[in-house]
Simulated scan of single mutants.
Amino acid sequence: MNLEILTPSGKTYSGEVMGVQLPGITGSFEVLDNHAPLVSGLKAGQLKIFVEKNRNELYQIQGGFVEVLNNKVTVLVEGSKPVE
């Protein structure tokens, strides 16, 4: 599935991933291939990207929203930066 992380200053991530773990406003949740359509609020926290087996990337995000539709995950947040 395709993941994009967008902020007011531009795109901070774009690529094919196996899944993503998001800090929802009512708790953390994961989105995997063929997930049902979804729109949800996000709180500030860590977003974990499952890039491939045994390889993950972490991003620190500020609050925003996520939309899941047709194997595309679009994360719209106020700010995002990779965690080293």
Rank of each mutant, 00 (worst) to 15 (best):
Y59G: 03
T74R: 12
M18N: 14
V51M: 05
T26A: 05
S80R: 12
V39A: 09
N34F: 04
P37Q: 05
L22A: 07
V51G: 00
V31F: 00
N56R: 13
T7G: 06
L6W: 04
L38Q: 00
T7E: 13
G24P: 01
I25M: 07
N54R: 13
G41C: 09
V75W: 02
I61W: 02
E52W: 03
E78R: 14
G64I: 04
N2Q: 15
G63A: 12
Q62P: 01
G19M: 14
E16K: 09
V31H: 07
V51T: 14
G64E: 02
E4K: 15
T74G: 11
I25Q: 00
V83C: 12
I5R: 15
F50T: 12
E4R: 15
F29D: 00
Q46F: 07
G63Y: 03
F50W: 11
T12Q: 08
I5G: 08
P37L: 08
E30L: 12
V17Y: 14
E57M: 13
R55I: 06
L6P: 06
Y13M: 02
L76Q: 08
N2G: 01
G64D: 02
V77E: 04
G27P: 00
P82G: 04
G19T: 02
E78D: 11
N56Y: 15
Q46H: 11
N56P: 04
G24W: 01
K72H: 15
E30K: 09
V39I: 13
L47T: 12
E4F: 05
N2K: 13
A44V: 06
S14N: 10
V17G: 06
E16I: 07
M18Y: 06
N71A: 03
F50M: 08
K53Q: 10
I49L: 07
V83L: 11
E52R: 15
L3G: 01
P37V: 02
S9T: 09
V68I: 12
A36E: 09
G10M: 12
E67R: 05
M18W: 08
F65H: 06
K43D: 02
V83D: 13
E57Q: 14
G27K: 01
V77A: 07
Q46A: 14
E30V: 11
R55V: 05
M18T: 04
F50L: 14
N70Q: 10
A44F: 01
N70K: 14
E67P: 02
I49F: 08
S14I: 05
G79A: 11
S80G: 06
K72A: 10
G10F: 10
A36W: 04
E30I: 05
G64Q: 03
V20G: 00
L22K: 01
E16V: 05
E4D: 09
K72E: 13
T74W: 07
V83M: 09
V51H: 12
G24N: 03
G79K: 10
V83N: 13
Q21H: 08
I49E: 07
L42T: 00
V51D: 06
P8V: 08
P8G: 02
V17E: 10
V51Y: 03
P8Q: 10
T12G: 12
G41M: 11
K43V: 13
L58N: 13
K72V: 11
L38A: 01
K53D: 08
K43A: 01
T26W: 01
S80V: 08
L47K: 05
G27D: 01
F50S: 14
Q46T: 14
K11D: 13
S80L: 04
S40R: 09
K72T: 07
G15L: 11
L3I: 13
I61H: 00
H35S: 09
